[in-house]
Design a protein around this nucleic acid. Structure first.
Lengths: 194, 194, 194, 194
DNA sequence: GATGAATGAGAATTCATTCAT
DNA sequence: AATGAATGAATTCTCATTCAT
């Protein structure tokens, strides 16, 4: 019975967090109301408080969960034969996805939150992707699947930075297309890795 | 007399905007209240409305003004004899400054606002620094003061991206020091420019 | 269940509108605050906004509802055998009621509002009573229940005008009693109808 | 010197009251701000308080002054040879003028104010016109210049009431023209006076 | 006398949170 | 478990009034 309850609880929490994400993307962390989330989750306002102590707790949990999803793509790299090609594809995919705005919207808010809230900062690993990439790069270099013209850490930072800023530029600057961004990323990668 | 009056007005607006900046750094754009700003500016709440129609107008003006201050540093480059050295110094300076948090804090919020608000997006030039750098790089390359291993645009994007992300990492990751960031930036620059 | 819920909602809306009326009578449309209404309705301020989007919507609804109540008395006339006697009684009743002030107080404010607000003007039918009376007079004249010394429209206008101004005079001029007003109305009616 | 000062004072008070009237017509008594009035009078906000203790006092003075202007037209009647013709013209003129809205707008607000504020009620003579008309009618009847089918008081009330309501109807009901109103007033007058 | 900057007391409105059902 | 009505504190904004210059 306790199991059953906790299964429902888990399911409900997921439902709420998923609804929250949609709201956060649309309205931003700070401006999203509990009513918005309840409406999106198609449940009553009061019921949310059964699963989350308050808005703060909900946001913290959301950030925690959301953070885990990032960086999973990089796992592909570890088994990649043609590392550089895969890396380029992943980067291009990221640029496209981020430029699609919704991911970035929430990321920005989480960052803003984390910068001001130690507790949140300790929960999230904002450089999660970078760390995973660094690991993959190191392994690949050891195994001779790639040659880097920069130390591993610097390279990982450089690559992630380029991807993120190129994507952001796509959103900000209407004259800058995803296509150009991808092309520039290719040039860039050619300089860094071989 | 009109001069005097408008001088006061200008001064008061600056006082308010400066107070606002402090509040925005501490509390974030969205969570800062008009009362906070009034308190910080050491004036009555109502008086703020003499100088700004409403909160939205205040924020827009703030973003506009704040934006103008960015990128001024890059002007040094145009007369630099040893371009690369100056660029490295500017980058290091930026990393240090951004890592000091307050600049980034506000930048993040402005970004968040801009991504959701067309009007704000049209006011700010979020890639202001990048554009200025691109121009300087182009001029320097023509004049033979620098050699780039990437096209000018790509290089500018790459450099700014590295600076910003390195700075962010300083804040986020306590194990990553400003010193390391500066060192990595130097390596990085060596790869891109000669 | 939906029934129950909407029943509560309807009941609450009525409670609020009723409280609003009392406030409007006492303080006037423009000077009544939402807090006043909440207090009078014995509920929290915030709760009013569950039932009315904002003050404007509340006022509009109030005016609409209040308007419907006017003119119902005239329905009696259509089945009246002794039309003139009934008309005289209705008029006397109106004078008494209006002179009781509260009706007139709100009417005046609605008028003021309507004269400056097209939307309100389109909602209310300020000459509702007059129109109903005109219809009744026409019918009664056709059926020979009354003889008018003026065209129907002019008569209806004249009668309503007299009632309203006599009532107003009762309030304004302490030397002018409701009794006198009624007496004068009788004289007046004798001139217009037979 | 005192004289000079008081001359200026009088002039300034008139300027303010005149500005106030325009504001009241446009925005209503309750919604007009002191700043509005200052702007309209083309003087500083603070200066108004030199001439009027506060807003309430200003409004009271305004009402008092405004009231005196009403009813002057009726003075023509006392010397009129063809009383009924002149009366008809005056009525028509009133209908036209009131239907022009601005007079009525302020009158409505004054009425609203008077009904709730004993002090104001004692200041204004809302039935000023009616009283003057009653006097004129009495005199004219004595002198045989007119024959009334109603007692003087009732007639005066009836005539004023008709004029006011007809004018109001012109504003409220777009299908009802000033022309029709005038025509109906003529019919009406024929019934009451000879 | 005149100015208009500044103040402070509300006013409308929103929203996280609680609680009876 | 779930609902959503109700609360009350906080927020933006307005405006009569005061006061230093």
């Amino acid at each position: 019975m306790t199991k059953k309850i906790s299964a429902l609880a888990t399911q409900q929490r997921e439902r709420i967090l998923s609804a929250a994400k949609q709201c956060f993307v649309e309205t931003g962390l700070a401006r999203t109301t509990m009513r918005d989330i309840a409406g999106q989750a198609d449940m009553s306002l009061g019921n949310i408080y059964r699963y989350f102590k308050n808005k703060e707790a909900l946001i913290e949990t959301f950030i925690e969960v959301d953070n885990q999803e990032v960086g999973e793509a990089f796992e592909l790299l570890d088994s990649a034969k043609n590392f550089k090609v895969i890396l380029q594809e992943i980067g291009s995919e990221f640029i496209k996805e981020i430029a699609n705005k919704s991911e970035l919207l929430v990321y920005t808010d989480i960052l803003s939150e984390a910068l001001r809230n130690e507790k949140v900062l300790s929960i999230v690993t904002l450089d999660h992707g970078e760390r995973m990439l660094a690991k993959s790069l190191e392994k690949a270099q050891k195994e001779g699947r790639i040659q880097l013209s920069l130390p591993v850490d610097t390279a990982a930072l450089a690559i992630i930075a380029f991807i993120e800023n190129a994507a952001l530029k796509c959103i900000i600057n209407k004259k800058y297309s995803v296509r150009t961004a991808k092309k520039q990323f290719k040039q860039y990668l050619d300089l860094i890795a071989d």
